[in-house]
Design a protein around this nucleic acid. Structure first.
Lengths: 169, 169
DNA sequence: TAAAATTATTTTAAGCTTAAAATAAATTAA
DNA sequence: TTAATTTATTTTAAGCTTAAAATAATTTTA
């Protein structure tokens, strides 16, 4: 710590105390609150309206974007959850007839997970309502708010990735 | 759907299709990505560095702000998790000597949960490092970015609360 | 090619999380 | 004051989640 080297005088507008990161902490807690609040409400509505859990919905949302299906690893990366987690989740979605599991024709280790027709139909119905819920939850933000927030979150995402990468790569 | 009633002509700058809320959806997914990314990293570091889970840390963080302790209900509201969840979490923290559970002197139904001295000392150590991690994760945002983001998230929080309240109150 | 390393997935053990039902104490209303 | 309601917490059952170890197939390297 070399804060003794910083000249302190009446002209210095705001000498920041080193080691004080309460502002960033509040920012993080607020971000987490928003995300928890919205996620909880979406979870509640999915259960109430369609008797489906959020993880099931999220998995189907990924598969809906990949008509040919996806490997477990790809799903794991995109959803940012562990592989082991997906194994169980896919088990249950197979049991309920929403998704299919087939062995990859080119790699015998890999499983290809895809939506069944029934699963796709059910997902599309849910996704339609889901989109309205999100629009409502963000409804008090105007166009500029949304684009500003989008940009700042993009910057946050890059910043976090940079900080995370530093550790392990 | 009354979109047939909207006059369409070359002068109309941007006739928004009703029912299209893909922008809000993208905003929500980006918010969720940021939160998941940061939360995952904090979870990983807490485990690696202190062998503690994030829920345990969060609970201790709440108690650290309440020197006299808090009831389970208050904890539940602040942490936005279910009561049943807290029962088990507190069980484990009592078992490890980090928190104490006493019956409220004024209400025999209520439990007062508080940090033990050991729990408080351990939390303070962890919190010190934790604050640096957060500062690092948000490190690429400048002062204006942070205050803009703070303001927009405050607006988002209010918007979500308004949307959630409408359902049940 | 055989050995070593990597990649894909599953299994395991422990803990987290929720919703819903149950229990118990306090408050309100008749 | 008794009965009804509300509030605080726990229990239960099911599912979610992770980290770490295990298994198995592919790719790389010597």
């Amino acid at each position: 710590m070399d804060d003794q080297a910083i000249p302190l005088d009446a002209e210095t507008k705001a000498v920041e105390k080193p080691e004080d990161h309460r502002e960033e902490l509040r920012l993080w807690l607020r971000l987490l609150t928003c995300s928890t609040l919205i996620e909880g409400e979406v979870r509640r509505r999915l259960r109430e309206r369609f008797d489906v859990t959020l993880p099931r919905f999220d998995l189907m949302a990924q598969l809906d974007k990949a008509p040919e299906g996806m490997s477990l690893s790809d799903l794991s990366k995109r959803m940012m959850v562990s592989n082991g987690n997906l194994t169980g989740l896919v088990d249950r979605l197979v049991a309920s007839g929403h998704v299919a599991r087939t062995v990859s024709p080119t790699d015998r280790r890999a499983m290809v997970i895809s939506l069944t027709e029934a699963g796709r139909a059910e997902f599309r119905t849910m996704a339609g309502e889901h989109e309205h819920w999100i629009a409502d939850l963000f409804g008090d933000l105007n166009t500029k708010d949304r684009s500003d927030l989008m940009r700042l979150l993009a910057k946050t995402k890059l910043s976090a990735r940079r900080a995370i990468m530093g550790d392990e790569k």
